[in-house]
Design a protein around this nucleic acid. Structure first.
Length: 547
RNA sequence: GCUCUCGUAGCUCAAAUGGAUAGAGCAACAGACUUCUAAUCUGUAGGUUAUAGGUUCGAGUCCUAUCGAGAGCGCCA
């Protein structure tokens, strides 16, 4: 809460002198008459100096210009009412207020798609959460780099190449549809045919060793796959700064292994390298034939990134089932002394169908993302067939993003297209509609709102509710940033949209006889538009111009 | 078998570091459109937070046990 930072610092000083270092955090007040609350004193209610602390707090809060009124209850909950007049002047400065004091370089790793497999429903959350965190960190002033981190290496691709070789498929004329059919066939064969398995293992080793003949085939397949992935990403409005893959760090691995061994950090066990860090289960670094694993390339990827950029913090946006892998990765990065940078596994739950089972097609495959997009787009056409394609696309993506981000990322949720495209309720369409409504109102008014100042005395209940809703922006923004949880902002965007709709519905604004009332409402609508746009930016949603 | 996560209104989900009376949306019910506005708004009802104990000024949140669900577990990524 940048605007109340002085207040917070002063209160923290009091605590520091009396009961020890403790940070003050504001929360939304339980009491609807107030905006924020401070709970730090509640647990001190039996402290021998509580009366002194209370009076120091009172004095400090009393002197804070942004606080209009406050109360300290008999159990020492502190409630604060913000002075709307002083705070409202700052609405248009919100972008400055949310900047952090110490910007960092943050890398977002999407734990990307594999070669040979189309983008499917399983990739949706990684894309949405990653994009949202990218925007949130950027708005907070960090410098952010996104890396799709393609799964372009290892056994899956070796299986595909082996399958193509064995079935004598013409690799020159292969297309994406062929490739997508080959992948499941190859992995099926790998599981049941030992001879095929040996051939694939051998091919994988050749890949690791940079065998030029197999690299040529690999390159061909990778290009086909990337082209298809880019088409889907384009439909869904996603872009990446880096298109690195696991293959890009292959050359760093032999040296890395050698160094770790000479440092006594890893040792051979049944021919495979395992970490000497005591851990259960043991951490496997390479396979017994010397070829590399998921963890091997992820470790080398970190080395590669640190070599190329100064990175303070890395976020891995990967589903929660891979928890053990990232636990092992982060443990290993520490144990191997790769640096003191931060690494976080931003885990998320799975998307299920309405019965709670993994979201699949009738054939039992994961549903393709591009098909999900098309179905959503079609559903929106049913609601309004007059929309141009551009608007339809934005709305379809709004639905796929908002419905995903409104749930806490760790929760598995049920995908229900009918529900998510509902025009009323907590949906993407609803928040877009409120935005369009506000814009239409201002455009129809022919009044220059930028020159209007609020007339506080003439604000009615619905105006005040919306203004006091907007005061919470910094709170929710921080919550999302600190915890890497975009859903707080999705929920908040709905709350503001709902408050706007209430105000709007309440009375006819443009025909209001009293000019100050009319101007107030137009000014508040202008604020709402900028807040709504900013929240959509945080979520990775583009506002539409008409609906 | 071991490890981890989860169980909140009929349904789908919220509730940061333990804080006051556990909140939204959908569905249900009752209302509001010759309008800048219905792709909307207003109201009502809906809960022993799986169960039983414990920790403390205070527990959906922490601990223990039971029941139920899901995931992961050295040569896939």
């Amino acid at each position: 809460m940048y605007q109340l930072l002085n207040l917070i610092n002063n209160l923290e000083n009091v605590l520091g002198k009396t009961v020890g270092v403790e940070s003050i955090s504001l929360r939304i007040s339980n009491n609807p008459k107030f905006d924020f609350q401070i709970n730090n004193l509640v647990k001190l209610q039996n402290h021998k100096h509580i009366k002194d602390i209370e009076s120091s707090f009172s004095e400090i809060i009393d002197n804070e210009a942004l606080i209009k009124s406050f109360e300290i209850t008999d159990t020492y909950f502190i409630n604060l009412e913000i002075d709307i007049e002083k705070f409202s002047n700052s609405f248009d400065k919100i972008k400055k207020y949310i900047k952090v004091r110490h910007p960092k370089t943050v890398l977002i790793d999407y734990g990307g798609p594999n070669i040979g497999k189309p983008l499917h429903v399983g990739h949706l959350r990684s894309l949405n959460i990653g994009k949202s965190l990218y925007r949130i960190y950027s708005l907070a002033g960090h410098s952010v780099i996104s890396d799709i981190h393609m799964g372009d290496w290892g056994m899956p691709i070796a299986q595909i190449i082996t399958y193509i070789e064995e079935k004598q498929i013409d690799i020159e004329n292969i297309n994406i549809d062929d490739l997508e059919k080959i992948y499941p066939e190859a992995s099926k064969l790998y599981l049941k045919d030992d001879e095929f398995k040996d051939l694939a293992q051998a091919n994988n080793k050749r890949l690791n060793e940079n065998n030029s003949k197999i690299l040529k085939k690999w390159k061909k397949l990778k290009n086909i796959s990337i082209k298809s992935i880019k088409e889907t990403l384009d439909a869904l409005n996603h872009r990446f700064d880096l298109w690195m893959g696991e293959s890009d760090v292959n050359h760093l691995i032999p040296e890395m292994i050698q160094k770790l061994e000479s440092e006594g950090k890893i040792s051979l066990d049944d021919g495979a390298y395992i970490s000497n860090l005591v851990s259960e289960p043991k951490i496997l670094i390479t396979k017994s034939d010397g070829s590399y694993l998921y963890l091997t390339t992820d470790l080398a990827t970190v080395l590669n990134r640190l070599k190329q950029n100064k990175i303070d913090k890395t976020l891995y946006i990967v589903d929660k089932r891979q928890n053990l892998h990232f636990e092992q990765l982060i443990k290993s990065l520490n144990y191997f002394d790769f640096g003191d940078e931060e690494y976080h596994h931003i885990a998320f739950g799975t998307i299920n169908d309405s019965n709670g089972n993994p979201y699949k097609t009738r054939e039992g495959d994961a549903k393709k993302l591009i098909n999900l997009f098309k179905e959503t787009s079609l559903q929106i056409k049913k609601i309004n067939s007059d929309l141009d394609d551009g608007t339809n696309k934005l709305l379809a993506n709004t639905v796929l993003t908002f419905s995903d981000l409104k749930t806490n990322r760790m929760t598995d949720y049920k995908f229900d297209l009918n529900k998510f495209t509902n025009t009323s309720g907590k949906t993407g369409i609803y928040v877009q509609y409120a935005f369009v409504r506000a814009k239409k109102l201002l455009n129809g008014s022919s009044i220059n709102t930028s020159k209007i100042n609020l007339n506080i005395a003439d604000l009615d209940e619905s105006d005040l509710s919306l203004i006091r809703g907007m005061i919470k922006f910094e709170y929710y923004f921080n919550l999302a940033l600190e915890n890497n949880e975009p859903h707080h902002l999705a929920d908040y965007l709905y709350e503001l949209s709902n408050l706007f709709n209430s105000m709007y519905q309440n009375q006819n604004i443009l025909e209001n006889k009293k000019e100050t009332v009319k101007f107030n409402k137009l000014k508040i609508s202008e604020f709402f538009i900028s807040y709504s746009a900013l929240l959509m930016e945080c979520l990775g949603i583009e506002p539409v111009e008409k609906m």
